[in-house]
Amino acid sequence: MKPIITVLNVSKTFRDSGEVLEVLKHINLEIHQGEFFVFVGPSGSGKSTLLRIMSKLEKEYDGTMTWEEGLSQKDMGFIFQQFALLPWLTVEENIALGLVGRGVSLLEQETIVRRELKQFNLEHFKDHRPRELSGGMRQRVGIARALATQPKIIFMDEPFSELDSFTARELKDELLAIWAERHLTIVMVTHIIEDAVELADRIAVLTSRPGMLEKVVSNRLPRPRKRRSEDFYTLEDELYKLIKP
């Protein structure tokens, strides 16, 4: 498989008023096209920082990070832990945000937004503001917004950690279906090991601060994955052992 993202010797240090905080050290990895890649690690291991470096939101770091040739910022979507919906915009306007930025015509915007509203069962809430929605529905809007621009790669920063378990379950199933249907590459950060085992093709384990790559584990469990199977638990145990707080 072709690498869509290549990370070479990436390190990141935050400097604030004389204080130095090394969060990532010498990270090397490749993420392949169509892959569901997940980062796990203890708190403060720099998972989110690495995700932001790979999505080009964080621009200052040491080392090199490259995207496949021809891939641009327009081909990427991002799903945030706390949804990052703009509260002054309606559901419809939030979903259309990336289309506005890409200069898509109003007519086309309407068609795409309608499609995403339908996909995520948000049709009746299109004129609502984010404050009027539950957490699960807000994250649906966040996912719909990320998908509306038809990205090739999606970055997700702990997308299910703010949701109740039922909603998270529902969204994970929907996400897996969309991933397969739209041939996306997904890079996700999570602290929930079960989610990593359930969703990922490969799982990168980061050490505690400064985050270094402990191991990249291939997840060969057949899909759809059975969460109560012995193999599932075995892989979960392996990951727990690798993650040292």
Binding site: Q73, F78, G101
Partner: peptide, 9 residues
């Protein structure tokens, strides 16, 4: 970040 990703200019 959401606005940057959306490419609003």
């Amino acid at each position: 970040e959401a606005v940057e990703i959306a490419g609003l200019k």
